[in-house]
Structure formats: structure tokens, C-alpha cells
Simulated scan of single mutants.
Amino acid sequence: MTSAHISAPSPTVNQRKQYIDKLPKHDPAKQPDNRFPLYLGDWRKSDPRYDDDLAMDNMDEPHLKRKLTILKAYPEIEKLYGHDNRTALVTILTAAAQVYFAYLFGRVWTETVAGMLVFAYVVGGSITALYGVLIHEASHNHAAPTVFLNKIVGLIANIGIPVPIYASFRRYHLEHHTYQGVTGMDPDLPLEWEKKMIRGNAALKLLWLFIFPVMYVVRGASMKRSPSTWEIYNVIFTLTTDMLMVRFCGLRGLLYLFLSLWFGYGLHPGAAHFIQEHYTFDDGQETYSYYGILNKPYMNIGFHNEHHDFTKVAWSRLPAVRAMAPEYYDSLAYHTSWLKVHWKFITEPGYGPQSRLGRTMEDHKTARKQAGKIRRADAHAYEAMALDDMKDTTTKEE
């Protein structure tokens, strides 16, 4: 299948043709996956006006195979692997800022309610949305040189969030990478009630996005798994920081942090990437990048295809991945405005929580085994990459 049907913003037809002409052509004898080289599927996106469930694919998630394909053409991308020490510094500074603002609203500016609400949305919500990015980087070990130090960075980011998020996010997000779209395994997929109740109704979608912070808790709980050691540590750590917050900043200061969390993970421009990343705006494409101005304050979180393809590349070097292999990324559909992502998703009845792609574990595993049909050297490289990418997803904590 080609990527001729693009509904998200894309290059011009001539530009896309120039990019695609540079790509290797599909040879079934050498490459059994008919999605090669862009790894776009032949499925039709789920439309809540007509469909009752997710669109389903009979192939594995596309990113590991595309990673191998891109590395054949551009092996120098591996030089971009590694963490960025600036992430830890930003985490410390933003955590200190939110604690200071909590003190101001808890002990100093105690007469204003409207002012606190506005500030919590504009400033607190923006910072909390950034915490999500920082926790994401720490979860992939991009914030510090060791796994343990990355976990400490994740806990520091959690100081400004009054509920224990970091350890659970790390656990389930790494599983999302390994089992993207696998029903019953990918914790990022919508639950049954989300698909059945909300569908394409604009008012319900607006309400659903407003309560989106709750969905992280509900979806995690639906996995019915015992908490890991670090999740327990995270609960103890957050309860301690919350008690200290009440002691020094008052209940009102803690309320400011709750409001910041609610706004920053809900109906906020900085939270639109939750919709941008995997909600299907076009047939055949399950992951989308965002190339807009808000990537600067939000540390390139919009480069989502690049991130899924190369999970070992820190935020600061993701644009370099795209620059090295433009024919693979600029020929995919992408977004340029998070405001438009929210607007389109909410107002158009053809989109809803079910606008996602699913696959069974059996299909996922079967499609992965196709790599063995590639010539032996490629198959070995593929297997090594698969094991390397999957090893961090274990729920056993150090």
C-alpha cells in the first residue's frame, strides 16, 4: 500500500513524490512485509459513525521494522543514542518553580480564587504538561547516565504532581512500546466503556478530554497487576511530599498542584500530544508526529514516529533523526498544530476514543516471525534489535 491518502498536514504532492522516489522498492523475495519501506497498513481507520470498535490490523507494530530499514540506509543514526544531562536540570528547576508557586497561593496570595484558577491553567498546567515529558524521558533513561539516577529524576518530577505517577507511567509506557496496539497488552488503548459511550459526540469528547487525567489511573488499574517495588516507593515518596506541601504551603498550596495536574493533563495545548500520537487521522497510519512551535518548550515530544523508531535517542536529538532520513518521515502524515488536533478531534464526528488501531497478540507474534524470512544476516540484526528494545520493558525493578 502507498501513503497516497493523507488527511493530516503533509508535504505537497511533488515533495512527497520526491521523498518516496528515494525509498527502496518492495521486493517480496527479500522483504515479506508488504508494508515495506514506510510500514503503512492496508486497514481503514475506525469511524464512530459507522464502526463499533477499533480498526484491526493483522500485522505487528511498524516501528521496529522501520528502525531496521532506516538503519540500513543511515547507520550513523546510532551515534545519536544516549541521554541528555539538561533533562535533569530542567526537572529540578521546574519542580522548584511549582513548589514556589504552591507556597505563593497557599501562604501569600490567599484571597484570590479566580487568579489561582487562571494561573493554574496558564502556568501550572503548562509546567505539569512538561512534567509529563520529563517523566517520559526519565522512563526511557534519557535524563541521566544510569537507570537508578533516571528513577530519581522521575521522582523529582513527581514532586510537582500530587499523585504518584512516575513509576506506573514508566512501567506501562515501556509495555506500550513493546506491545503497541495489542489488545489486552497495550495500556494506552481505550477501555470498552470509552469506546461505547463517547463515540463521535462532541460534547462527550470534550468532557472525556477534561477528565483525561483520571484515565491514566483507570487504565492502569484495569490491567489488574500487582504494584512493582518502585511503584510502592513512588506512593511513599508522593505521600511524603504531599504532607510536606501541606505543612509548608497549606492545603491551598496542595490544591494548586491538583488544579495544575488536572489542567495540564486534560484540555490543555500541551496535552494534545496524547491525541496526536496514535489516534488515527488517516487510513493505514497508526503513529503521527507533530512538527510545530510547541516542540521547543515541550522538548520535542511531538517527534513521535522518530521516538518510537529510535527509543534510545533523547529528546534533543530527535530532530536530527528526521533530518538524516527525511524521505521516511516527511512522506508520512503529520500534524503542525496541537490546537487543530484538539479542535478536529472534538468537533468532527468521525473521530472518537475508538479511533485507534488494535491487533491480537497472535498476529503480532506471527508478523514478527516474518523477519526470519529475510536473509540470515538481516534476521540476526532484527532479532538483536528486538531483544534490545524489549529488555527494558520488564516489570521487575532493580
Rank of each mutant, 00 (worst) to 15 (best):
P75T: 05
H176D: 00
L251W: 07
Q31P: 07
F310R: 01
Q180K: 06
Y334H: 08
R356M: 14
H380L: 14
T178W: 01
N295T: 13
G184C: 03
D309Q: 03
Y172A: 11
K365N: 13
F237L: 09
I374S: 07
S355E: 06
E383H: 09
F263A: 03
V163Y: 09
G160L: 05
V217Y: 10
Y39S: 02
S10W: 04
A271L: 09
S289H: 11
H177L: 11
D27I: 11
T393A: 15
D392E: 14
R171G: 04
D388L: 07
E76D: 10
S168P: 00
Y279M: 10
W262C: 02
V118P: 00
M197K: 15
L117R: 00
R44E: 15
T336W: 02
H5E: 13
V113T: 13
D27K: 10
L318C: 05
K195Y: 13
L239Y: 15
Q98A: 13
S46A: 15
D60F: 00
E111R: 04
R16L: 09
A371K: 12
T12G: 02
N305Y: 04
P349N: 13
P162R: 07
H173Q: 06
W208I: 00
T347F: 02
L204Y: 12
V113R: 08
L257Q: 11
A96M: 15
R375M: 12
T347E: 05
R376S: 14
A203P: 00
W230M: 13
L68P: 00
H136L: 10
V313C: 06
K22A: 08
Y103W: 15
M243W: 14
E194W: 01
R219D: 06
S355F: 07
P11Q: 10
V108M: 01
L261R: 12
I236D: 03
A88N: 04
P11G: 05
L155C: 04
A367M: 07
T229V: 12
F274E: 12
L261M: 15
L117N: 00
Y279G: 00
P187G: 08
R247G: 00
M245F: 09
A203W: 01
M243H: 11
V133T: 14
G124N: 13
V163N: 02
E76Q: 13
S228N: 11
A95G: 07
L174Y: 05
I346V: 14
F119N: 08
G181W: 01
V246T: 04
L68H: 11
V123E: 12
V99C: 14
R375T: 12
T347G: 05
Y100D: 00
A167K: 07
D283I: 03
M385C: 03
H177I: 06
I70P: 09
A144R: 07
P190D: 09
F303Y: 15
K369M: 11
Y179T: 04
T87Y: 13
T393D: 11
G352T: 02
V99E: 13
G292R: 08
A323T: 08
T360A: 03
L130W: 01
H63C: 13
